[in-house]
């Protein structure tokens, strides 16, 4: 059951990324390009996604997940060095190519060879991050 609902969640995520235009690197770079031809679409995507998600967090309060286990612990209040350094590095890569992890997966089937190159490099980066993560916990 867990993989089934994982698949359903992933399919909703992938469908949403596809129809919202967020797998189009020009739209993402256009949103970041405040001094150029600014494209506000990403703000509508983020707003549309936050609404059902905020309802979900409210529903989760005082309950347990449908398939058992526990909900994630309340958000960690500390903004650490790793969070800031990591987000700056991520943002730089996001701006350079116009792709973040979700859309890079959603566009694999039709985006062409460059998307496979991106995902391969991203996975290499994720593995390269292991020793750095081990030295600096995420909240420090």
């Amino acid at each position: 059951m867990r993989p089934l609902f994982g698949f359903i969640a992933g399919a909703l995520f992938g469908a949403g990324l596809f129809i919202s235009g967020m797998t189009d690197t020009a739209k993402v770079q256009g949103w970041l390009d405040v001094f150029g031809d600014w494209d506000p679409t990403l703000a509508f995507v983020m707003g549309g996604a936050i609404l059902p998600m905020a309802v979900a967090w409210a529903v989760a309060r005082g309950r347990k997940p449908a398939l058992g286990g526990r909900f994630p612990t309340p958000p960690e209040p500390r903004v650490g060095r790793n969070l800031i350094v990591g987000s700056v590095l991520f943002g730089a890569g996001w701006g350079l190519a116009g792709l973040c992890p979700g859309p890079s997966l959603a566009s694999l089937s039709y985006g062409g060879a460059m998307h496979w190159v991106f995902v391969a490099a991203m996975i290499a980066g994720m593995i390269a991050a292991v020793p750095i993560r081990a030295r600096m916990p995420a909240t420090t």
Binding site: G6, G10, F13, A15, I19, A66
Partner: peptide, 27 residues
């Protein structure tokens, strides 16, 4: 594009809601 962006965003949020409420995990 904004309307499709919003509609796609709602689907993304629904995916996150399923993953949270059913699997108990952050998407």
């Amino acid at each position: 594009d904004w309307i499709w962006g919003f509609a796609g965003g709602v689907l993304i949020g629904l995916g996150g809601a399923v993953y949270l409420l059913v699997n108990g995990r952050i998407m």
